[in-house]
């Protein structure tokens, strides 16, 4: 392969047996594609048309169920509400109320706190697990098997996975009774369930695999000869990890970060369930307003939440080109 060519994209994912020939073929095929694309303008138009036709169902779904809802929420955030109904209007009251109340700031701060703590734990655990799988498990078969073992819970119900912490963390749960029988504590710990602790525990439990998957994927593309070169040049294990593996894993870390941060910031159900309705984040603020049929104020909060999330994503995307990483 030429040194200038993108070095990575063909390793991980579906492991194909004919990797090397595929790469050379692709390199040869490229110029041919290019001449075809730059054909006539009519050809260019028809190739746009083919793209549009193929993308039409996708565009339609996203227009109706993503763009329109966002537009609708923005519109309704300026509406007024009585106790029973909402009416069209153009007023800033919802926003004024939102920014005038210090509950808002506390709740946003709490949301960031959950996101930051969960991010730190999921990154630490996710990186360690992915590192083990990618660099210490030696055969591809075992790597795939253990990787799948880590991802299977993703395809099961989040609600059930939250519920399943109750017998563990409850007042008479496994954790408390074990600690008491060991003599570590005399009284059951009250903060295990329905607290910030249990909220973050559940977040870490639910979302760590969103870190494991992209980090593992990036690690599998790292050229192993780089690791060897580092050790030949006299780097210790830690130095290799810090100066070679971590920098090369950054794209995966960023993608995992995007997943975890947005999932935690947009969550309302985990916080409600695991805190026993005692803690709040922005999602719960919105869902409470919805419960009270105060759609305009729910919409205003939702708009601010969306802007916040998109700003965070915008910042994170500066560090990684998603399209290149797939």
């Amino acid at each position: 392969m030429t040194p200038g060519a993108p070095a990575i994209p063909f390793r991980a994912g579906a492991p194909s047996s004919n990797e090397t020939p595929a790469m050379t073929d692709q390199a040869i095929a490229k110029p041919a594609v290019r001449t075809r694309v730059s054909a006539s303008r009519l050809g260019a138009l028809s190739h746009h048309a083919a793209g549009w036709l193929l993308a039409a169902p996708l565009a339609l779904v996203l227009a109706v169920f993503l763009v329109l809802p966002i537009v609708m929420i923005v519109i309704v955030s300026f509406w007024g509400a009585t106790e029973f109904s909402i009416y069209p209007d153009f007023q800033w009251d919802n926003y004024r109320f939102l920014f005038g109340s210090d509950v808002t700031y506390r709740v946003f701060l709490n949301t960031f706190k959950y996101a930051a703590i969960t991010w730190a734990f999921t990154l630490l655990i996710g990186f360690t697990v992915a590192y083990f799988l990618a660099f210490h498990v030696r055969t591809l078969g075992w790597q795939v098997a253990l990787f799948l073992l880590c991802t299977i819970p993703f395809w099961t119900s989040n609600i059930i996975r939250m519920i399943s912490w109750i017998p563990f963390l409850g007042r008479n749960g496994l954790a408390n009774s074990t600690l008491i029988s060991w003599g570590v504590i005399d009284e059951p710990l009250e903060w295990l369930l329905f607290s910030d602790f249990s909220v973050i525990l559940a977040f870490v439990h639910l979302y760590t695999l969103f870190m494991v998957v992209p980090i593992f994927n990036t690690m599998m593309r790292i050229d192993r000869s780089l690791i060897e070169a580092a050790s030949d040049a006299g780097a210790s294990g830690w130095q290799t990890l810090w100066h070679v593996v971590i920098p090369l894993t950054k794209p995966g870390i960023m993608i995992g970060t995007i997943f975890v941060v947005t999932l935690v910031m947009g969550d309302f159900i985990t916080v409600r369930f695991m805190s026993g309705s005692q803690s709040a984040n922005v999602g719960r603020l919105i869902s409470n307003d919805i419960g009270l049929l105060q759609y305009p104020s729910a919409s205003a909060t939702a708009v601010i939440l969306l802007i916040t999330v998109l700003m965070v994503i915008g910042i994170l995307l500066r560090f990684v080109d998603i399209r290149k990483e797939l």
Partner: peptide, 17 residues
């Protein structure tokens, strides 16, 4: 955006429409 948008916004927006 569809991936990162808080789910409750979709719920709320579609419900409102």
């Amino acid at each position: 955006t569809s991936l990162v948008i808080p789910s409750i916004l979709i719920s709320l927006g579609v419900g409102l429409i």
